[in-house]
Design a protein around this nucleic acid. Sequence first.
RNA 1: GCUCCUAUCGUCUAGAGGCCUAGGACGGAGCCCUCUCACGGCUUAAACCGGGGUUCGAAUCCCCGUAGGAGCGCCA
Length: 468
Amino acid sequence: MTVTRFAPSPTGFLHIGGARTALFSYLYAKGRGGQFLLRIEDTDRERSTQAAVDAIFEGMAWLGLKSDFPEIYQTRRFDRYAEVIEQMLAAGTAYRCYCTREELDAMRAEQQARKERPRYDGRWRPEPGKTLPPVPAGVPPVVRFRNPAEGQVLLRDLIKGEIVFDNRELDDLIIARADGVPTYNFCVVVDDMDMGITHVIRGDDHVNNTPRQINILKALGATPPQYAHVSMILGGDGQKLSKRHGALGVMEYRTMGFMPEALLNYLVRLGWSHGDQELFTREEMMAKFDFDHVSASPARFDMEKAWWVNHQYLKATDPAVIAPEFEWHLRRIGIDPAQGPALTAVIEQQRERCRSLVEMAEKSRFFFEELSGYNEKDAAKHLSAKAAPVLSALLEALAGPDWQPEALHAAVHGVAERLGLKLGDVAQPLRVALAGMAVSPPIDQTLFLLGRRRSLDRLQAALVRATG
RNA sequence: GCUCCUAUCGUCUAGAGGCCUAGGACGGAGCCCUCUCACGGCUUAAACCGGGGUUCGAAUCCCCGUAGGAGCGCCA
């Protein structure tokens, strides 16, 4: 069975690149009847925070990327790591190194001065016939992996293709610090092995770690998983995203007005394609996602296209599904959703003209709250003195009929006909009177949703303004 | 410096040697529709990084440049 994992380190929010990696992992496993798990890589206790852990859960939950297991924390697996390190020490695939940080720093500096690639020189690496330096007093040792000195490592990456690494390029990395805490490259290997991960899907900044991890896995007698290294996402300007430069947490996309499925759809198409298809339901993504069509090169995040996708979702999704998210946005800008028409009805009428839920909430305010005033430009144009007869005719015509879209439509058209005006000359003043601005859903729908009482009151107020 | 990766319209991409006069989508321009804003429909401009090979034939395979990027921690 396919088992994938998303393994973020909790040092910040869940950003867009992480979300895409998580999505790919999730889709690949779930589309094959497999399992997906979330693992928190918190071995760096200096930088890991609970707030970041919470932010990651929150982001994953909003996106609907559910783990099939309770989340796993590496810090709770220290006993297991210690056990494996002991095994490796006993087997001779790892050894203790008594170099101090100062020694290592000096080594690196010298190598860089000689324009060489910095690497551990193996001074504590046991070799047949080699005499190791005397163990210094008072230096707690680190444990290093004894990487094979010869040969090559072949990585068959599902995205990048075959990559060959020479073992001579790889040095003996530290797998346990002097204080006994194991390091990332080691924990990952043990976890992936223990958890039966079949496909490691992660950012391509890890490509260079992979041969080391494969070597450790082999030293442990395990079969390496398949790897898929996903390229990163660049900002719209082609620059790398960072905290300083445009990197946003997924929850900020919620605040901006994205639907979670829409964000997911945009993200899945960023670097992956399925012919010419642009829009996918969650089920389609799961069924169709594969690594044969994932691009190896980095992609830019194009906000315009992301909005387009969001708009497509707003237009096509069942309003009942959108409603809770819409309500969240209404409340966020201080609107009480109870003080107006049914949200599903408002969504139905507004979604054609809104690319974001923020836009929808703002454009729908007049349905839920009394008008705080008119857009002055629109009022000047449509509520001038010459609008007065139109408004009073409307007041009269709308007093009678059933408050249903068809009857309201007929009433407005009737006024235009009677006064010998184009529909626009009647609908626009009416629109500004009702909405406070010259933009709203079709006029009959606007009237209908706003209700008789509010409509007539606002018409009356507009008439006062036009005459006065 | 060394190792590794990447390269098709402005952007996301299709393209598995002939189906390519390089397709789609976003964005742009224009037209139509129209009670506003939109939606929608139609039309249009816009790309194979450069140079060498391989081949009857290359966007596609190989090599070399060039340009971007990643990594080289007792970080992950």
